[in-house]
Amino acid sequence: MAGFRESLVLPLALALASCGASAAGDDGTRPFQTTEMGKFEEPWALAFLPGGASALVTEKAGTLKLWRKGAGTVTVSGAPKVAYGGQGGLGDVALAPDFAASGTVYLSWAEPGPNGTAGAALGRARLVQGPSPRLDGLTVIWRQDRKVTGEGHFSHRIAFSPDGKFLFVSSGERQKFTPAQDLGTNLGKVVRLLPDGTPAPGNPFAAKGGVSAQIWSYGHRNVLGLKFDAAGRLWDLEHGPRGGDELNLVKPGLNYGWPLVSDGDHYDGRAIPRNRTRPDLAQPAITWNPVIAPGDFIFYRGAMFPRWQGHALIAGLASGALVDVAIEGDKAREVTRHDFGQRLREIVEHPDGSVWILEDGPGGRLLRLTPRTQPTNQ
């Protein structure tokens, strides 16, 4: 399920999980083969360092790992203290556009607050590599406003604009519904910042001042994917309630409807008006009912899988599948699903064009997808 259920481990997925080099669910007809490259505890995000021979991996309980090809993993010291529980913990990791010169990395996490509250935070630090890697000078540059109770819908995905000038962050509505429509808070929003965390000039609600100056778009629920396509357009991938996961083309100042509309319903069965009933609101490119419960997605750009070029490839949690989606203008169409029999949390394209996936949960495997060496039945 989407929403708070996306943090649950599915017994069926555990029963189907493979301990071999290939992922479960492979009947020999898929266009790729899988190779296990490592294992992690509740991994959440991955970012390759330049060249792709090493990568940073976040583990939800609060550990940052440095994976090195052929040399295993080592813990990076200096990670922040996190509010671990439910969907809360250490979240996304991204390299600064000038990483090669500055060594700067960005991290997001659920930050504990007073009286049992929590909220997403974004920080940056310098990565010092070597035998004992560490983060130097970790500084919080952005926070959800305000911290609230609960352990869901932090979102906190990070995306830099293609020109490297702007930093976008997804900010979930924390399962509180109405903040998504309130321009006086950054909950339920996509925000656009400068790399130092200050509001970017020219944002659509800058004239309102305060936290409103951060907001790029609003009416979002729980955005767990935030990516630019090859044309420089920003897209988000978010969880609906009971049904209604959606992929959106994100444009400045637009209202994406939550909780006024959805193509799903409340968990208690209460109906929600459908997106089509409000043409004045931004319409999703595609929705899913039943849900796919996305973990993250990419726009594939490599040469290793020609049939995927320009497609959105989604790592599915509840669906336990790699979901292939074709982009057709400002709309989208699901092409196919590849069943893994396991919850998939993260998906990243390697510099060589291979696709890497992190399974969700304890012992989550890092899998490298490459084209099959033998013909398929497809």
Rank of each mutant, 00 (worst) to 15 (best):
F4L: 15
R5N: 14
S7C: 15
S7N: 13
L8G: 13
L14T: 15
L16H: 11
A24M: 08
G25P: 11
Q33T: 15
M37E: 15
K60D: 07
L64N: 02
K65V: 03
K65H: 06
A71P: 01
A71R: 10
G72V: 03
T75A: 14
S77L: 07
Y84W: 12
G85K: 03
Q87S: 04
A101I: 06
T104Q: 11
T104D: 13
P114I: 10
P114D: 15
S132G: 14
L135Y: 06
I141G: 09
W142S: 09
E151R: 14
H153D: 08
R157L: 05
K165Y: 09
S171Q: 12
Q175P: 07
K176C: 10
T178A: 15
T178I: 15
Q181L: 13
Q181S: 08
G184V: 08
T185Q: 09
V191D: 03
L193S: 05
A200E: 06
A207R: 12
A207D: 11
G209Q: 07
F228K: 05
A231K: 15
P241F: 01
D245M: 00
G253S: 07
G253D: 09
L254D: 12
L254V: 06
N255R: 05
D263M: 01
G264S: 09
Y267T: 03
P273D: 09
T277S: 13
N289H: 11
P294H: 03
D296Q: 05
Y300S: 05
A303G: 13
M304W: 09
L317N: 10
D324I: 01
D324A: 04
G329M: 06
D330M: 10
D330F: 07
R337L: 00
Q342S: 10
L344C: 01
R345V: 04
R345T: 07
